[in-house]
Design a binder for these strands. Structure first.
Lengths: 109, 109
DNA sequence: GCCTACTACTTAGTGCTACTTTGTACTGGT
DNA sequence: ACCAGTACAAAGTAGCACTAAGTAGTAGGC
């Protein structure tokens, strides 16, 4: 992964994962696979798991342990009310940033 | 400034500053004022100066000392060829991110 | 029975970046 | 003399993605 992408993901990866969970509950391995499938080619597994621990500790998600047919039990995360609020705030911050950057990209003054 | 914004600026602020310099040369104090004017309300002065030092050391900008009528001499930064290449790469990375996030925002699975 | 591969999660340590705080220095107004 | 505004610098902090290594469980090949 490029260094630019690594730095740009700081702050946004969290929003991306929350947005995924807003769609439907998911577990770490699944999220990692989804991200890689979407072109975040070399996203580190450890990164996703650490992020999930963080948002759990902040109370943005609910967790449920579900046995798996293959391998250890899965930790399935789902967005709760607080998480949805936080996600909305994220979209607000993101919109703010994209607006400024779009202006700059159009050879803005 | 919100914590979300702080984290999101990591990686993007550099691109923002380079984009500003692509428009026309500028010095630190000027850039800080411009950013605050654009709504990046509480951006720390130290942050901008540190960033400028970084991109100078990476050879993305040329520097010229220009005397000021008020206060110490200004360090005027201008984007050089390498900086322009780097900025283009930044826009590529940025586009990639915005595409994925737009899809996620439209409740996409 | 052993080895590999895949699934699934955990953890210790590193590097980079924005922020905080403090300091330096020059000019102009009162 | 003092203060506000201009302009830059530097040391220390916090947070996040990455690296690397490890732990566990299941299934298939030999």
């Amino acid at each position: 992964m490029g260094k630019q992408m690594t730095e740009m993901l700081k702050g946004t990866l969290e929003g991306i994962v929350l947005a995924i969970l807003a769609g439907s509950p998911a577990y770490g391995y699944e999220i990692t696979a989804w991200l890689r499938n979407q072109g975040f080619s070399d996203i580190a597994e450890g990164t996703v798991y650490a992020l999930l621990v963080r948002i759990e500790q902040r109370g943005l998600v609910d967790v449920e342990k579900v046995p798996s047919e293959k391998g250890p039990p899965r930790k399935v995360y789902s967005l709760n009310a607080q998480g949805r609020d936080y996600l909305e705030e994220f979209w607000g911050t993101w919109s703010f940033l994209t607006e400024r950057l779009e202006r700059l990209q159009e050879g803005g003054s």
